[in-house]
Design a protein around this nucleic acid. Structure first.
Lengths: 118, 118
DNA sequence: ACTACATTTAGGCAAGTATCGAAATAACCC
DNA sequence: GGGTTATTTCGATACTTGCCTAAATGTAGT
């Protein structure tokens, strides 16, 4: 669905108005991740990461799936509202050379929830 | 130029994360406007509008030109960073049926700085 | 230079946000 | 069922933001 009001559109952009949330979306471009993996990369409290994820979920950017004691988050393949989808395609082209994003990507590739969580 | 970091990109989105700033951009799609015209439409204090405009300017969305005692603001035709330009093209397609935006547009067409400012 | 007025800056207040640690919840394993 | 662990919710704190009023700045016309 299209966004209906300036207020709704503002909320979508608000979700992207925080660097750590952008880093999370760039990480999820690589693969679905659970909260503890994201927490390990961002070096924030788990509760903080959980909050960021709920903001991204409510804005329509990501969806979650339970997997035992883990919760996997991934990019929403059927973005709603539509503007979220266009944000995705920009995001995919942006920050491809950003140091932090590149280093996050490397950590994503090496991180493993089974080693992480004892 | 492309945006360099998640922080910079967040700042661009932060500019669009406020309904009144989105309304301002939709108004400027119609024509350049001075601060007092925007103030008359939004019904906010002039200083508040001025602050919103400076946020939009610093994010690269608008430029200003002095015109006597007025300052005209208009959409930046050479948006920098590039992502600002893509935001413009989405914005142009969004909120075309929003009541507030339509009513703002009507006011923009009837407002006149010379009548407004005695 | 003086006045008028559009705009910006400064100061203050209320509401919202990012963060943490601790407590609550949920799901696994023994 | 009881212990363990991943996640979310709650409460507190520091910071940021949006708004206003008042003061400062800049420009035009007399």
């Amino acid at each position: 669905m299209n966004v209906h009001s300036a207020r709704e559109l503002a909320r979508v952009h608000q979700a992207l108005a925080e660097p750590n949330r952008i880093r999370i979306l760039k990480m999820l471009e690589i693969r679905p991740l659970c909260v503890c993996e994201i927490t390990a990369v961002l070096q924030l409290a788990a509760s903080t990461v959980s909050k960021h994820l709920s903001i991204l979920r409510e804005a329509g950017f990501i969806v979650d799936h339970k997997d035992g004691k883990w919760v996997n988050y991934q990019l929403n393949e059927h973005p709603d509202p539509k503007v979220v989808g266009t944000c995705f395609s920009h995001l995919a082209r942006l920050l491809t050379n950003d140091e932090t994003v590149l280093s996050d990507a490397e950590k994503v590739r090496s991180v493993d929830r089974h080693q992480l969580c004892k």
